[in-house]
Amino acid sequence: MKNRIFLTLLSVLLVAATDPSSCASEIEMERLFKSDFAGFQPPNAGKIKVGAVHRTVANTSYDDVWNALLVVSMQRQVIASASKESGVLVAMQIPAGRGYLLSGFPTVIFLERKGPGEVEVYCNWLEDYYSTTGAKPVVKVKVRGMTKERLANGYLDKVVNQALSKRRWNYLRR
């Protein structure tokens, strides 16, 4: 009997976590897409660096890595904000109806000049975009360290490949 109650509670929690329509308020990512990102402010470099996964790209230039970021990101997600000057790029996938967990993680990137021919790329997945938009925001999804590592490896491999090859590669297949 106890097991039954536990399983019922668990399934309700799972549905609530994956189906935004079951929640009282929408999450920030959905609000941004609904409003066409009106007034969207990208996070600053300091915020992106906290808890980010980073990698050094050597034997290349800032321009080449930035171009590579654009080419890879534009094939995977909607680029919500990009500034070559500040080195910050924010890209998100359109939340799919049944659940935002299935639609991909919003990616936030910061590019930093490190030394001659060296560029540091910071990738992060901020919880802000998974917060509810109500009076008391609640973070619906926490992206853990291991998930960040996995996402960063998949993303950065493509960026480095693109930066060094300079030929546009197709990443339409996920």
């Binding site: 534009m74 909607v78 680029i79 990009a82």
Partner: peptide, 30 residues
């Protein structure tokens, strides 16, 4: 159509087109 972001230094423009019944298409243009 509405521009989401535009950065001339990057050569990037992202704009959105809202079609019938509020469906949207986002275009990343480089």
């Amino acid at each position: 159509r509405k521009i989401v972001t535009a950065d001339k230094a990057s050569g990037l423009v992202t704009f959105v087109l809202t079609t019938g019944s509020e469906t949207k298409i986002f275009y990343n243009v480089l």
